[in-house]
Amino acid sequence: MTVVLDVITAVLFLGGASFCLLGALGLLRFPDTMSRLHAAAKAQTLGLLLILVGAAVQMSPNLAPVLLLVALFQLLTAPITSQIIGRTAYRTHGLERHLLLRDELADRLEHEGSPVHRRTDHSDRRERDDEDTEDTEDAEDAEDAEDAEDAEDAER
């Protein structure tokens, strides 16, 4: 029985430690805040979870609820932290836009007329930048036309 428990603990510990290591590696190597967030979540949730379960298997059974509590709390709070960091990163230019294939939030913000902070200084993104500027130019043209109409109305 002890051997079985030992093997279970060994597998869980090594798995959890591997996830921690890989998450840390991703945190170090990934290029921008958003992708680092993705790597960090691996270490924070599954890495810690496996290690806590491994510890709970090995320790006395009346300790398991407390470790489960820690695991549950971590599972609840890690997404909240990630969401707040991600939102702040989006609002404060924390992401490399030329790495994005799609930015649905920007499309939506543009559609609703909110100001979108697009960076245009990335040379790799020339093509999409051109598209973007065309779009905004169109929008500006439309606005200009409206303004002109308003001015005419005022003159009358």
Binding site: Q44, G47, L48, L52
Partner: peptide, 8 residues
């Protein structure tokens, strides 16, 4: 993440 690793 560091605090998570301290917990682990």
């Amino acid at each position: 993440v560091l605090v998570t690793m301290v917990i682990a």
